[in-house]
């Protein structure tokens, strides 16, 4: 089946079987391997991408379902102006160790901040409850999202000094 999508702003077409999962279309047909496959059971969130701006787990959506839609992946965050605020937040706050969950975490955070530019810590933790990280214990990820929130709002940036908890 022939489908057409916009991937990070670029029109793409592909011929896929109905059973092809969106994550496989993105990684294998379009070679955008920033989107990861973790659990493959919609538990871990490593495959999180945006479909028309809404975060979704691409391992549990068929490629044919997104025909005509806009897909955003981690590769689309960097622009000519530089890092996206969420990328800068992760970088400044040391919010990754192995980096496997990072693309999914960041894409989820992008939608979270789009809907709620100034989330509380509780809202951030609920907001990323569908994304698992097995290295950092989440604290630095939460700090990164707070940092990105401040950056997006033009507020004073929080300290990025390591906190010992």
């Amino acid at each position: 089946m022939e489908i057409k999508i916009k991937l990070n702003g670029t029109e793409m077409t592909a011929d896929v079987e109905p059973r092809t999962l969106l994550v496989h279309l993105i990684r294998e047909k379009f070679s955008s391997t920033g989107t990861h496959i973790g659990c493959d059971t919609s538990s871990c969130g490593a495959c999180t991408i945006l479909i028309d701006g809404k975060s979704a787990k691409s391992c549990t959506i068929l490629a044919v379902q997104v025909n005509g839609k806009e897909i955003s992946t981690v590769e689309g965050l960097l622009t000519a102006e530089g890092l996206h605020p969420i990328q800068e937040g992760f970088k400044e706050n040391h919010a990754l160790h192995c980096g496997f969950c990072t693309p999914g975490m960041m894409m989820r955070a992008v939608e979270l901040l789009e809907k709620n530019p100034n989330p509380s810590e509780d809202e951030i933790r609920w907001g990323i409850s569908g994304n698992l990280c097995r290295c950092t214990g989440y604290n630095n990820i939460v700090s990164a999202i707070k940092y990105a929130s401040a950056k997006i709002r033009g507020a004073e940036l929080p300290s990025t000094e390591p906190k010992f908890v």
Partner: peptide
């Protein structure tokens, strides 16, 4: 709703 799966799943 808060207890059904997670935010990404609830989007769909």
């Amino acid at each position: 709703a808060k207890l059904i799966a997670d935010p990404q799943v609830r989007n769909w």
